[in-house]
Simulated assay, not measured.
Amino acid sequence: MNSRIKGKTIVITGASGGIGEQMAIKVAESGGNLALIARRVHLLQALKEKLTTEYKCKVEVYPLNVTDYEQIPSVFHTILEDFGTIHALINNAGYGIFQEAHEVTFQDVKGMMDVNVLGLMACTGEVLPHMREQGFGHIMNIASQAGKFATPKSSAYSASKHAVLGYTNSVRMEAKRYGVKVTAVNPGPIATDFFSIADESGNYVKNVEKFMLDPAYVADTVVNGLFTNKREINLPRWMNMGSKIYQLFPSFVEKAGNNLFFKK
């Protein structure tokens, strides 16, 4: 439970499943109100019914593909009309495809950049002026450990998450002057349907299954971080330690871990 959330309005993109759905549940448990964004409206409606019945909070759903950039301003305008304010935005929409650089199609590369980076930027751009004006707010961008520590078969996905981290770090410094908090969330592999697209062969899941994070645990950690001054949330801690070692000794890590990295 996060008492700081009670009565506040939280927008979550990619809320129809995975950690997006779990974060919505955690926000509702803490007494927050929710604006849920995703493509799969039937799943959003089912989640809304569950949350309003069990927690008596206000929940509205907004069907949107975050690559429909022209639609994003009107959706956020409607959210502000419905709720009056936005206290936090969790940019969660995203996906990945694990293939070697010469195998991944340009269409898939563009798709990851459109959703993971440009969609996130577009949504952030809609809430920043409002948050700056009210002098309060929190933007949480779901990035990845892959954005800190690139490995084979994830070149395009890692590039998109590197971009998210660069954008997040810059916006954090800009927004701080106006009382707006910005946090990067860097999870390792999570046991969700993410891998039905990212890893069609199933090999990566088999190799890392015992290390996969529970989506409810990730969601709880993220939601507990809302309205705190955390610069980053890194999960699991041991994997983040690996990224720090990589930054210090990249050649050694790439050589020592070469065989392991190719088990995707």
Rank of each mutant, 00 (worst) to 15 (best):
T85E: 15
H130F: 00
D82C: 05
F106S: 02
N116P: 03
Q45V: 11
L51A: 12
E81Q: 13
T52L: 01
Y95D: 13
K110N: 02
I90M: 12
H130T: 03
S74H: 13
K26Y: 15
Q134R: 05
H87T: 07
G137E: 09
L47Q: 07
K48T: 08
V66N: 05
H77Q: 13
G84Y: 15
Q99R: 08
T52Q: 14
M112N: 05
A35S: 07
C57I: 15
Q45I: 14
M131V: 00
V117T: 11
S30I: 14
V61F: 09
G84E: 14
A93L: 10
I90K: 12
G135Q: 08
I25A: 08
H102R: 12
K56N: 14
T124K: 02
V75A: 01
L89Y: 10
I72Q: 06
L47W: 13
L128W: 03
D108W: 04
M113I: 10
P63V: 01
M131E: 01
D108A: 09
T105Q: 07
D108Y: 02
G32D: 08
A38M: 08
K50N: 06
C57H: 11
F136V: 12
E100P: 00
V104W: 03
N92C: 02
H42C: 04
V66T: 10
D114K: 11
Y69C: 04
G137I: 09
G31Q: 11
V66Q: 04
M113P: 06
I79K: 03
A38P: 01
L36I: 09
E70T: 07
A122H: 06
Y69E: 04
V115W: 06
V127A: 05
E29W: 14
L47D: 10
A101W: 03
N65P: 00
Y69T: 02
V59Q: 04
V117C: 08
V117W: 09
F106E: 15
L34Y: 13
G84C: 04
Y95A: 11
A46P: 00
F136I: 10
I37E: 05
E100I: 10
G32E: 07
E29C: 02
R132P: 10
D82H: 09
L47C: 07
D82E: 12
K26H: 13
Q45R: 14
E103S: 01
A28Y: 11
V61C: 10
G31P: 04
V75D: 02
L118W: 07
P73G: 00
D108R: 07
E126R: 02
V41R: 11
T67D: 05
R132A: 00
M121I: 08
K48D: 12
D68Q: 10
G137R: 03
Y62M: 06
K58E: 12
I37W: 09
S30Y: 15
I72E: 00
I86M: 15
F98Y: 13
Q107H: 02
V75C: 09
L36A: 01
T67K: 03
G119R: 05
S74P: 03
V104F: 06
T85Q: 15
T52I: 08
A101V: 12
F136M: 14
L128N: 02
N92W: 10
G137Q: 09
L44W: 15
L120C: 01
S30Q: 09
H130S: 02
R40P: 09
L80R: 15
V117L: 15
L34E: 13
K26L: 09
R39L: 10
Y55A: 14
I90W: 06
A46Q: 14
A101H: 01
K56M: 11
K110L: 05
R39P: 07
